[in-house]
Design a protein around this nucleic acid. Structure first.
Length: 478
RNA sequence: CGGGGUGUAGCGCAGACGGUAGCGCGCUUGGUUCGGGACCAAGAGGCCAGGAGUUCAAAUCUCCUCACUCCGACCA
């Protein structure tokens, strides 16, 4: 540390410039590379591995609740996109169009899917005949394109990877249950696997998905107090079914329209992980999705027995966790810093002194606590310590959120909080769009959601003074 | 889409007074090191973002374009 100029890989301090810190992490932890198309990034092996782990865990949950994976086309004919009015109005400003096929102009230009409701509806109309065919519970893992004006890796890119679930059901109740079931799966996944506490609630009409009857979301709070919508689940009623002519013969031998849902999470979750858990040293990855859960750093690898012991440990640990043995010829100190930056939850140091004592040194990424551990105990200690890292991550995120959650009864209080703090502001709300718009205008706040867990803060809307209907959580969002 | 910033080696930067390029790190090879970002030596690496001007001569001056980035607006 004597020579600070050595720290060319250093990242911007998190409290100095959070946006720059975020960009530094994305690039220096080797998660992404910029491509030559604005807003499109390369997910590098280390970044993609995180997404793969997210996919594996979520896919298992989808399958366990009876969903099947499918693959839909990437193109939507303009005529198809036009069928649902609100939907097309919502998405038209940000779709990319294919107008040429080879050297010939297309008569019906093709939209590169920004989301696939229309494609699924078109397909459902083909394959649905009887109530016995229901429910159809489909999911697809794919990328979609939305022509964003300002872009940031993971948070908002022109192409991004996600999953979109699309289901149709015989009854409204069943579809509504599905909508909430999937929201709960997302929330549970974020909390259990990503160690990110989330707020569950319903979106206001202003914020809901184009064409939806109701949109629900999970909202996560980032280190800097800004909110990140981390997953959404929509209930469509039979609006899309009617627009696309999706019908089935019911138990009563009458033609009926099914009720529909869609829900999705994206690579934005990787952004949520970075911004929820990271610190000045770099990334901290939740053990459940970390590409490497343990990195083994041999110390004085040239000394007799060290390399052999390290390799033996790597093989042994590989049986119960994801492990990386760093045999590069960098110095141990360099490796410590490097793997801390890349967020590996646990480090295992093994050197001549350890071998002599039949132990190793385990270091937690979260608090750098050193644990001198007998080698024979690793099968017990490592899983336990991974759990401990998860616990610490969740506790820290929850503490940050608690410290940044405020409530206000008057506009003065709202303004005071919005100007001096960064976080959630809870207020009562009359339900009028005008007041929601005023919040944006005067305080720069958007409604995050109407939480399922309601509190009574007062009787009136701080904006207009009319009787309040619900409590809303406001904030600045990514 | 509006406002600011930046484009010179892989990365970070200097060169701005016109005279076709330099520093640090990284990289390669060899050697010594190794418990918190090691050191020595020898190398490789550049259409100075792109285009058009001015000039005997442009990284440097003028104009245009593009890209990236930050802050707004908009949207997931």
């Amino acid at each position: 540390m004597k020579d600070n100029k050595k720290l060319v890989e250093a990242i911007t301090p998190i409290d100095q410039d959070f946006a720059q810190w975020y960009t530094d992490i994305c690039l220096k932890a080797e998660l992404v590379d910029y491509s030559s198309v604005k807003g499109c990034v390369v997910l590098r092996p280390y970044g993609y591995a995180i997404w793969e782990n997210i996919q594996k865990l979520l896919d298992a949950r989808f399958k366990a609740t009876g969903h099947e994976n499918v693959a839909m086309p990437i193109f939507i004919p303009e005529s198809l996109l036009q069928k649902e009015k609100d939907h097309v109005e919502g998405f038209a400003p940000e779709v990319a169009w294919v107008t040429m096929g080879g050297s010939e102009e297309l008569e019906d230009r093709l939209c590169v899917r920004p989301t696939s409701e229309t494609l699924f509806c078109d397909h459902f109309a083909h394959v649905l005949h009887s109530w016995r065919d229901l429910p159809m519970k489909y999911n697809q893992w794919c990328s979609v394109v939305r022509w964003e004006k300002t872009t940031r890796p993971f948070l908002r890119s022109r192409e991004f990877w996600w999953q979109e679930g699309h289901t149709i059901h015989e009854t409204a109740q069943e579809a509504q249950d599905e909508t909430l079931q999937m929201l709960n799966i997302y929330a549970d996944f974020c909390e259990q696997e990503l160690n990110i506490p989330v707020l569950k609630g319903r979106k206001t009409d202003k914020e809901k998905f184009a064409g939806a009857e109701a949109t629900y979301s999970i909202e996560a709070m980032m280190y800097d107090g800004k909110a990140l919508q981390s997953g959404t689940s929509h209930y469509f009623g039979d609006g899309f079914s009617r627009a696309f002519g999706v019908q089935f013969t019911g138990r009563d031998n009458q033609l009926q329209y099914p009720f529909q849902t869609s829900w999705g999470v994206s690579t934005r979750l990787v952004g949520a992980i970075i911004m929820t858990h990271g610190d000045d040293e770099g990334l901290i990855l939740p053990p459940a999705v970390a590409p490497y859960q343990v990195v083994i750093v041999p110390v004085a690898a040239h000394k007799p027995g060290v390399t052999e012991a390290a390799r033996e440990l790597a093989a042994r640990l590989g049986k119960f966790c994801r492990v990386k043995l760093d045999e590069s010829d960098n110095t141990p100190g360099w490796k410590f810093a490097q793997w801390e930056m890349k967020g590996v939850p646990l480090r295992l140091e093994i050197g001549p002194k350890d071998i002599e004592k039949g132990q190793c040194v385990l270091v937690r990424r979260t608090d750098r606590e050193k644990l001198f551990t007998p080698l024979e105990d690793l099968e017990q200690v490592i899983p336990a310590q991974l759990v401990e890292v998860s616990r610490q991550l969740y506790a820290r995120a929850q503490k940050n959120r608690a410290e940044r959650t405020f409530s206000a009864k008057t506009m003065d209080e709202v303004m005071e909080l919005a100007n001096t703090r960064s976080g959630y502001i809870k207020t009562m709300w009359c339900g009028d769009l005008a007041c929601e718009e005023k919040m944006k205008e005067v305080a720069g706040l958007s409604s995050r959601c109407i939480p399922f867990e309601q509190e009574v803060i007062g009787d009136v809307c701080p904006c207009c003074g009319k009787p309040a209907k619900t409590m809303v959580v406001w904030g600045k969002a990514y």
